[in-house]
Write a protein that binds this DNA or RNA. Structure first.
Lengths: 338, 338
DNA sequence: ATCGATTGGGTAATCGATTACCCGGTTTTC
DNA sequence: GAAAACCGGGTAATCGATTACCCAATCGAT
């Protein structure tokens, strides 16, 4: 426990400077020295102390990532994509979950900053309550938001164009013949929740279809199931339900079917995200695909560019989503209306 | 960016020693000094540098956790449980995914050790290939394995009694009248995979029921679906299938039903883990519950006790699992056989 | 042969927080 | 009243790796 570069230097019979040079290769050393250092390293099982290196270099080779929760498959896929993106860059990822609580989120940001991460990627859990902690962090270190963002636009962001996404979904079900529509989403605590609802309402209004009251809860399977039950209880079903994410959609489909409602014949359902198991459910879910790999790549790229407390106006990179029609909505063949 | 304790000391008009003492409270200072340091901290927005502290103290206040993948809900629930367990202990968690690759796993362990984590919690992805990296890590830092473990028993472990778990599952379906049974699991690359299969085979043999060939792939929903298809293709269905985890079970149920097979009437299915959505699927899944909170608590407790490279024989804490009967298996009422 | 450039190696400063050690003053104790 | 104990504060060593700076030796060019 605790073999240092001094031990290596002593064992190799050279100075610490030579040992360090032999290891880093940042200055030439004679083959003789290189050889002896290499041998000493192998013999002693030396492993450089990243803490000491970080202190000296003022850089840790890590970036922090904070997401609302790792129980939600959308966030885990984006985390995995970021990990893949960072794979061979020599930086590694410190992952934290805020558990959908702005307090926990602020605490996590504090400890990541105390550990001097070189950058931060965050999906802020609350559009309002997350503001101070996120802006403060952005002042101290390069930061990019991904998917969710805080109001006021004080920090860079990359994500999908939420409004465009639900517009695709809503127009699709309306083109499929829906005359009355509803929305199942989350309470309006995040940017995604707000934009997806507002985009839906705007599109429905423009198309002149009847809009039944929205069902707002959480981004979970459980809420989807509950939303389905409530829909059944009202006694009045819409022709289509647009959901704020796939979890809700899957839950909703399940409870509608349990209630004897046919999907898509009686009610069409469209999700959002296109997480892995959207294909695997029964019936396979029509949904709006988020290009997760692209978002992750873009976030990492952007992070490399931004500087802490940069006065330059924040960038916002909105990637266009794509509709994936599977079997919970009617395919659109010309003139199927009614 | 970078206000240090020297800046604070200067602003407060005291020495760094006094500033440090005022902050840590590890030696008394006069109220006067405390007051002025507090004011300086607030004014300058000082935040202690955890890196420097770690270097000086030779302890980082972090523990590393390595799991095979965060796409698998079982691992995310256990990660969340460990996080909760660590919540107020002042240590925080560095989470890594090995992506089911022993190479990636070894690399992650290396970087966690380089960052001088105070301890490690790991679920080794491969019972054989993970051995050297895990043993090496255990020699350098307190380490406990959770759920999966490496062969040879060189490191402490806490998990569920896998064999007892599948025994419960198998006896349950047999008591429910199954005369022929099969097992859908994962290739035998992890301890869990092996023990769950062997426990199943032993129980089935003891009960004298017919054992159809096991289906071994991955611990995923996709594999469950595929396994169901293969079962349908053979033309010969068992009365019951015991699955190595819930993902497989859910996939299997789905594809059996798609093939017109009734669950549990034609084929009973039992899962393993009891992850959140086992309740949410259709029909709700009978499964073996892993007491995740208890495992996490036990792992953290044990980690506090083990010392690096401790010659004391490794402890193995096996928690008894519990069978949860829902609707993919017939409830056992006395004498329902056949 | 001599001067400047180059090369490779060593010494010690540096990063920021903690704390061993020292010192002067006050309080306690016999 | 003198010695001992105590108290609060300051200076500088420490953790481990990197590197600025210095120095001696060698090489090439004139």
């Amino acid at each position: 426990m605790g073999v240092t570069i001094h031990d290596v230097a002593r064992a190799a019979g050279v100075s610490v400077a030579s040992a360090s040079r032999a290891l880093s290769g940042r200055r030439r050393v004679t083959p003789e020295v290189a050889e002896r250092v290499a041998r000493a390293v192998a013999e002693l099982g030396y492993q450089p102390n990243a803490i000491a290196k970080a202190l000296r270099d003022q850089t840790t080779g890590t970036i922090g990532m904070v997401v609302p929760g790792i129980g939600n498959p959308f966030f885990t896929t984006i985390v995995e994509a970021v990990e893949r993106e960072l794979q061979n860059s020599g930086t590694d990822l410190l992952l934290c979950a805020s558990q959908y609580s702005p307090q926990v989120e602020a605490r996590r940001l504090e400890t990541l900053l105390a550990r001097r991460v070189d950058g931060l990627i965050i999906s802020p859990c609350d559009i309002e309550a997350s503001v101070p902690a996120v802006l403060d962090a952005a002042r101290r270190v390069p930061l990019v938001q991904v998917d969710r963002y805080i109001e006021g636009g004080g920090a860079d962001w990359v994500g999908v164009d939420d409004e465009a996404g639900v517009t695709l979904a809503a127009e699709h079900v309306i083109a499929g013949g829906a005359r009355s529509v509803s929305f199942a989403g989350s309470r309006l605590v995040s940017s995604s929740a707000r934009l997806r609802l507002s985009g839906f309402e705007r599109t429905a209004a423009r198309a002149g279809v009847e809009v039944l009251p929205a069902l707002l809860g959480e981004f979970t399977l459980e809420w989807g199931v509950e939303a389905g039950r409530r829909l059944l209880d009202t006694g009045r079903l819409p022709d289509a339900v647009v959901c704020a994410n796939d979890e809700i959609a899957v839950g909703l489909v399940r409870s509608l079917r349990l209630g004897g409602v046919r999907v898509p014949e009686d009610v069409a359902v469209v999700g959002f995200d296109d997480v892995g198991h959207a294909t695997m459910c029964d019936p396979p879910l029509s949904t709006v695909r988020q290009p997760v790999e692209e978002m992750a790549a873009e976030a990492v790229r952007l992070l490399g560019q931004v500087k802490a407390g940069d006065p330059r106006p924040a960038q916002r990179i909105a990637i266009a989503p794509r509709l994936v029609v599977r079997q919970t909505s009617r395919p659109v063949t010309a003139g199927v209306a009614e």
